[in-house]
């Protein structure tokens, strides 16, 4: 530095230089190209709206974003698992709707027992998920058609149960108040719920043989079957898991609005969940994807939606933006896979 005679030999200099270059690259490999671009997009979106509106990057608004994405995030996390299997669950929003109604009605009819309300909702979620799985596996119905059908059917069931209006009132109960407004370490209970579910599903996918088999089923179901994996059991179980998580989302909706909502709050969630999963790097033909990417995409969508609201963009345009985003996400994915433009896509 100060003396030229004692210049360090070039060898260590180059190795330390290589080291310094290797570290970011190693971090980049661990995060993945998909997630890196998502983080980049998130920074651009947040930066743009913060520049456009001073109120955007405030703690209050960030909390709003967090609470908005909690329900979507739960459904997107579980949608990721379904998509990794090579399937799709369009009915998650309707399942959340049923669960919301059931939780409030069970709560009211048991004279304010929150635990029973939640258990009833989860039970209904499992049942709805198992019906999906059984129709798909044993009825041999394409997952898109089957869950499109149950999307409508479950919505109808929720409306019938609720008589077409909001049911029950839960915000006299401490537990529901806690879910709706509680905070732990400065973060809302809703965000913590998303966090806990996401971590649990991530561990399931990455560190257990169950998760490994789920990836195998999505990658090559024949190979999975020949390896002795009971594919039918797995698919029904995955749809049941989707039902359970949708039920948790439904309970959050109930707490948030104070009553069981058959449709408001849960309609359109399936599109957001699928968009987030696709944007997060899930291959719609199965076998590829992860919770990290999906969560980043959920936050990206949340930040975008909130930002468009803050700067006053017509909400009709937001629907257009959301649909376009799903198409763009899948187009990018297919391009990256080198899919040839011949006939129907696989």
């Amino acid at each position: 530095m100060t003396t030229t005679t004692n210049a360090p030999p070039p060898m260590p200099a180059t190795t330390s230089g290589a080291h310094a270059r290797a570290l970011p690259r190693r971090v980049a490999t661990a995060v993945g190209a998909q997630n890196t671009s998502l983080i980049g997009a998130l920074i651009v979106v947040v930066g743009t709206f913060a520049w456009l509106d001073d109120g955007y990057l405030t703690t209050a608004n960030m909390t709003v974003i967090g609470d908005t994405v909690a329900v979507t995030g739960l459904l997107a996390v579980v949608q990721t698992v379904v998509i990794i299997c090579g399937a799709l669950d369009i009915s998650v929003g309707s399942q959340a709707g049923i669960a919301s109604v059931v939780s409030a009605m069970a709560f009211t009819s048991t004279d304010g027992n929150a635990a029973l309300g939640i258990l009833a909702a989860i039970g209904v979620g499992i049942a709805a998920g198992v019906v999906n799985g059984v129709v798909i596996v044993y009825g041999r119905v394409n997952p898109v058609i089957a869950t499109l059908a149950t999307l409508a059917a479950y919505k109808g069931v929720a409306q019938l149960l609720a008589g077409g209006r909001a049911q029950g009132y839960v915000l006299g109960d401490d537990f529901f108040i806690f879910v709706a407004r509680g905070k732990i370490l400065g973060l809302s209970v809703q965000i913590w719920t998303l966090f806990v579910v996401a971590v649990a599903v991530h561990i399931l996918l990455k560190y257990t043989d169950i998760g490994r088999n789920i990836y195998a089923i999505g990658g090559n179901d024949t190979a999975a079957r020949l390896a002795g994996i009971n594919i039918n059991k797995y698919l029904v179980a995955v749809y049941a898991l989707a039902g359970v998580v949708a039920a948790i989302a439904g309970v959050i909706l109930t707490a948030r609005t104070g009553s069981g909502q058959p449709t408001s709050g849960s309609e359109g969630l399936e599109l957001k969940a699928i968009t987030a999963a696709a944007l997060g790097g899930c291959a719609l033909k199965g076998g590829k994807g992860g919770i990290g990417g999906t969560l980043l995409a959920v936050f990206l969508l949340g930040a975008l939606e909130n930002g468009l609201n803050v700067v006053g963009v017509n909400s009709f345009w937001q629907n257009v933006a959301q649909g376009a985003l799903l198409v763009v996400a899948v187009v990018i994915q297919q391009r990256r896979n080198g899919e040839r433009a011949v006939g129907l896509p696989t």
């Binding site: 257990t208 043989d209 490994r212 990658g219 090559n220 190979a223 999975a224 390896a227 994996i229 076998g287």
Partner: peptide
């Protein structure tokens, strides 16, 4: 003949498919 390998998994994961060690 068609090998029954999962393209999306790596070599180790394929070799232990369905019989993973825990």
């Amino acid at each position: 003949q068609d090998l029954a390998l999962c393209d999306n998994l790596d070599i180790v994961q394929n070799m232990f498919l369905g019989r993973e060690r825990r």
